[in-house]
């Protein structure tokens, strides 16, 4: 079986297949940007919470953590536009998907910390060490 098409370069594929893959790839890129935006808004909401209730939320961590999702979307969109690739393959695949994974894990840690703060399980007060 010739697995070369799985490298997923647009040339040589029938038009309908190319359209399917283009729509799919753009859909995933837009979805990744929306998810990044929602986590960014959560980080900014954590900042408001910290300001109002004077409890340390480490909102900066929550704002920076999802950046890998945005970088993944930029890499994927860039490869599609510049090289016509529908999927991240080879070294760039490891970088793109790796960034997505790392970002997902860091966001999980950040959001869990914030959850502990608002649940009252983390008693660190703003501007004070306990």
């Amino acid at each position: 079986m010739n697995l070369l098409p799985l490298v997923l370069i647009s040339g040589g594929l029938p038009q309908d297949v190319q359209q399917l893959w283009t729509m799919k790839t753009w859909g995933i890129v837009v979805a990744a940007i929306l998810l990044w935006l929602s986590f960014l808004l959560l980080g900014l909401s954590a900042r408001n919470y910290e300001k109002v209730l004077r409890k340390a939320t480490e909102w900066q961590f929550l704002v920076i953590a999802p950046s890998g999702i945005l970088l993944y979307a930029i890499i994927q969109a860039g490869l599609l536009v510049l090289q016509g690739k529908y999927r991240l393959v080879g070294g760039i695949g490891y970088i793109g998907y790796g960034l997505f994974l790392i970002s997902s894990i860091i966001t999980l840690i950040g959001i869990f910390r914030f959850y502990r703060v608002i649940s009252g399980r983390r008693k660190k007060r703003f501007g004070r060490k306990q």
């Binding site: 729509m23 753009w26 995933i28 940007i33 929602s38 986590f39």
Partner: peptide, 17 residues
């Protein structure tokens, strides 16, 4: 898969927004 991810992103951004 893309439609599901878009729906996921859209719902998340509406809630957080």
């Amino acid at each position: 898969e893309a439609i599901m991810l878009l729906a996921s992103g859209l719902f998340a951004v509406i809630a957080s927004g």
